[in-house]
Design a binder for these strands. Structure first.
Length: 455
DNA sequence: GAGTGCGGGTTAT
DNA sequence: ATAACCCGCACTC
């Protein structure tokens, strides 16, 4: 245990280098990190008790609670990502990577469902488990003290990021039924979703704008697409944002922030177009959507035979399904909801194309594997992350002056038992927070005005 | 219904 | 002893 007195050379985040989540004593830090939704690798963060997402132990990754028999430290392990068994490609070259349900029961229902990509031929959803921590799932640890929330991640995810957590939730909250009349209304709704996405996690945006240099994912539906009312791309199909030459593509955003535009437009598929693209040629992009619109999360709700024995392969990337898999009794042409997917209108899968398509190897963190030698499967390079990798930064406005140490045990029994775990009794309060909330209120109101105007 | 936290219990190393 | 994992329960939204 290293006693932390002051930090001026932090490379990992605020007061993150010299403590471990299992330390009997954790430092009272002088500065906090802004919340990072997509923490990857072996990182440690310290969040202010007022950070709502930290209090909720939120994460972009699909993390499930894991019992570590330690009431002081909450442990979560990564569930991986829901992918297509045949690794089909979307028109933009990316792959399906949905968010696995946290609930075991719901997750089992997801598996074996036909791939929602209408261009996919016979693929089914399966969970690609996370093996980023020495062969085990990446784990997150949360620990609360009176004046801070300590977060530590162990392992680097060896799979694409799943669909952002808010995506399906927002759609569900928006969902005023399945019926969508016309493409205009549909697109307006998608734009509204994007707007609402910007308001669902106000604190994150707040921290981004004010104190958070951590790169956060762009909205699932970029601002540019909100004006693409002539774009008729369906879910998985809108490749407008991938066009290398914006001038040649009406759908391409002209108002996209430069950084994002660069990220998207510099993309060059490392592989030939997927064979399924030939199917796309027969698809009439101008066709109006079917009357009844199914969203993937709705698919998951349907009562379909669950293939509980669906193979869970360690390296699913190289394991295409068998002929039997592709021609099972659950073949999609007979499934009514699959037919609906032939006329998609919603936005689904992840709006974040799989970084894997960039090729290369996923980042390695062998040095952190202290349990056993384990060679992580090559996947995709860190720089190929669709979202910019998170950097380290401090939160100047959240700096506090003094330093103390908290111990669960003798020194901190009262703190931890009566305060630290009482989310409603956070001690963090400052004018800065007030300013942040005011900023959010303004932003929220603006977004909601736009949102209401669209629906 | 799904997400989440908690805790008892089992298994493997 | 430690870690991963399964399962059930309760609570919340």
């Amino acid at each position: 245990m290293v006693i932390l007195t002051s930090r001026t050379d932090m490379s990992e985040g605020a007061a993150t280098a010299d403590w471990d989540i299992n330390d009997a004593v954790v430092p009272r830090v002088t500065s906090f990190d802004a919340f990072g939704e997509w923490c990857d690798g072996h990182v440690r963060r310290v969040y202010p008790p007022a950070c709502e997402e930290a209090r909720r132990h939120a994460s972009g990754w699909a993390m499930r609670n894991t019992n570590n028999h330690n009431v002081h430290i909450l442990k979560k392990s990564c569930l991986g990502v829901l992918v297509c068994s045949v690794r089909c490609r979307l028109p933009d070259g990316s792959r399906v990577h949905l968010r696995p349900a946290i609930c075991d029961k719901a997750r089992k229902k997801q598996q074996g469902k036909p791939c929602p990509n209408r261009l996919c031929n016979g693929g089914r959803l399966e969970v690609q488990p996370c093996r980023g921590h020495c062969g085990y799932p990446v784990t997150h640890f949360w620990r609360h003290t009176e004046h801070a929330i300590f977060f530590q991640a162990k392992g680097s995810h060896d799979h694409p990021r799943p669909e952002a957590k808010g995506a399906s939730e927002v759609r569900r909250s928006l969902g005023a039924g399945r019926r969508v009349r016309g493409i205009a209304l549909l697109l307006a709704r998608e734009a509204a979703i994007a707007d609402k996405m910007m308001t669902v996690k106000p604190e994150k945006q707040m921290s981004q704008k004010l104190v958070n240099p951590h790169s956060q994912p762009p909205p699932l539906i970029p601002d540019s697409q909100r004006v693409q009312l002539t774009c008729t791309c369906g879910p998985f199909e809108c490749s407008c944002r991938w066009r290398a030459d914006p001038s040649s593509e009406p759908c391409m955003a002209s108002t996209w922030p430069l950084s994002e535009a660069q990220t998207y437009t510099t993309y060059v598929p490392p592989v030939p177009p997927a064979p399924s693209l030939s199917v796309q040629q027969h698809y009439d992009p101008t066709a109006l959507p079917a009357d009844d619109i199914f969203h993937p999360e709705e698919i998951f709700q349907l009562d379909q035979p669950i293939r509980l024995d669906y193979p869970m392969e360690e390296n699913t990337l190289e394991s295409p399904p068998t002929f039997a898999d592709l021609n099972s009794e659950n073949s999609r042409p007979e499934d009514p909801y699959w037919l609906d997917w032939q006329h998609p209108t919603g936005s689904e899968s992840s709006e974040t194309p799989s970084p894997e398509l960039f090729g290369g190897c996923y980042q390695q963190n062998e040095g952190y594997c202290d349990q056993q030698a384990y060679v992580q499967q090559p996947y995709y390079p860190e720089e190929a992350q669709y979202y910019p990798t998170e950097s380290t930064r401090n939160s100047p406005i959240m700096d506090i002056q003094d330093q103390r140490f908290y111990r669960y045990g003798q020194d901190c029994v009262q703190t931890l038992e009566t305060q630290a775990w009482n989310y409603s009794d956070c001690a963090f309060s400052s004018n800065d927070v007030t300013e942040c909330k005011q900023y959010f209120d303004v932003q929220h109101q603006q977004n909601m005005n736009a949102f209401n105007g669209l629906l």
